[in-house]
């Protein structure tokens, strides 16, 4: 739905409540960052510039993944005031995998499972205030998990 249609709908609105969640979603989800096939385009669309390499970002993942469809990843940031953790894999068809934003007592820590197309680095970017920090870990992928 176009923005104009949405506004018209809101103005018209008795059943607007049913539609709002979808519209909120499309306003929130960073389409440009998630749909690009280039790592630098993804980071640019996340407004990331000048990442500082930091070993205070801890990445726990296997050295070798039998199946790229399910690669477990654990990330913890020891950087003060961490607000967000992004997970990227450059050689994936779309490099940006996830962006986690923490607030109100959530720790800068996440465990999840990702897809990897081929052997590559998992690149983590942490946002802390106006600064960005990065660390990466190489994973050998034996079977393409991106289909």
């Amino acid at each position: 739905m176009q923005r104009r249609n949405f506004l018209t709908f809101l103005l018209g609105g008795a059943t607007a409540l049913l539609v709002i969640p979808l519209q909120v979603l499309s306003a929130v989800w960073n389409r440009a960052a998630f749909e690009t096939t280039k790592l630098d385009e993804a980071t640019k669309n996340l407004s990331i510039d000048n990442e500082i390499v930091s070993l205070d970002i801890q990445i726990i993942a296997p050295d070798k993944a039998e199946n790229g469809a399910v690669v477990p990843v654990e990330v913890r940031s020891h950087i003060a005031n961490t607000e967000a953790i992004a997970i990227l894999v450059e050689k994936n068809p779309t490099p940006l995998i996830a962006n986690f934003m923490f607030s109100h007592g959530a720790e800068p820590f996440v465990v999840t499972r990702i897809k990897m197309a081929e052997t590559d680095d998992i690149k983590i970017i942490v946002k802390a205030g106006n600064q960005y920090f990065t660390n990466s870990k190489n994973i050998i992928v034996l079977e393409n998990g991106c289909g």
Partner: peptide, 30 residues
């Protein structure tokens, strides 16, 4: 994710999150 209605985590995902997504996160003060 919310704790007593207060937002604690917002995750945006692309297609690179594995099938049947699994997630662990930690919250202080609950």
């Amino acid at each position: 994710a919310t704790l007593n209605g207060k937002p604690v985590l917002e995750a945006q995902w692309g297609t690179g999150v594995a099938k049947n997504p699994y997630l662990t996160f930690h919250v202080k003060g609950a």
